[in-house]
Amino acid sequence: MIQTINLCKSYRISGQVIKAADRVNISISTGELVAIIGHSGSGKTTLLSLLGGLTKPDSGQVLIEDLNLWSMNDSRLAQLRNKRFGFIYQFASLIPTLTALENLYLPTAFGKGYDDLKNRAMDLLQKVGMNDKADFYPSQLSGGQQRRVSIARAFINNPEIILADEPTGDLDEETEAEIIDLFKTMNQERGTTFIIVTHNKSIAQQAQRNFSMRDGDLQEN
């Protein structure tokens, strides 16, 4: 379970204080698929980063199974991100000079690795329908195909929680539907928790629970 207690984060831009997270309290159970919806600048990406331990809150706590993320030192926090979190971004996040398969291997550079790494990676590529393009470089793949590879990469360490920031932001409707179906399948088959940040209401409606965010304030719909 991932939980936040009075989570606050603000930025000072041109002398003005912007509240990105204003006393956010949320509790998400293991295996849930939730969506956070909101306009640009509402604070949803910041909240996702706070949940994933990528940025430190001004106050409040982020708990993973009762373990406060920010009570850990940087090294342990990095280990936790490596083992328990998977991140999916809206932008092209593949390394252009690595093949699809090598991009999948990348997170293992920071962990213990696996004896069956290649099989593991190929299984994931098969899951996202990209096993026949394992040796392709990102420039040889379409935007949707690249997104599929980055989704597969997020699963290489079999994380408990996937944090997806506008995962279908720049994709056409058909590919968007395929990606959301893929999330649902992974959620059901693996019991992985999904927290998806989006401004797309139709995606939010497919989640088990959805939240709205406005000026750093989070409300469950």
Partner: peptide
């Protein structure tokens, strides 16, 4: 910077 941030998100420690 973005890529380095992504690597940190993947679990890269400062020393990595």
């Amino acid at each position: 910077q973005r890529e380095l941030g992504m690597l940190r998100a993947m679990g890269a420690k400062r020393q990595h």
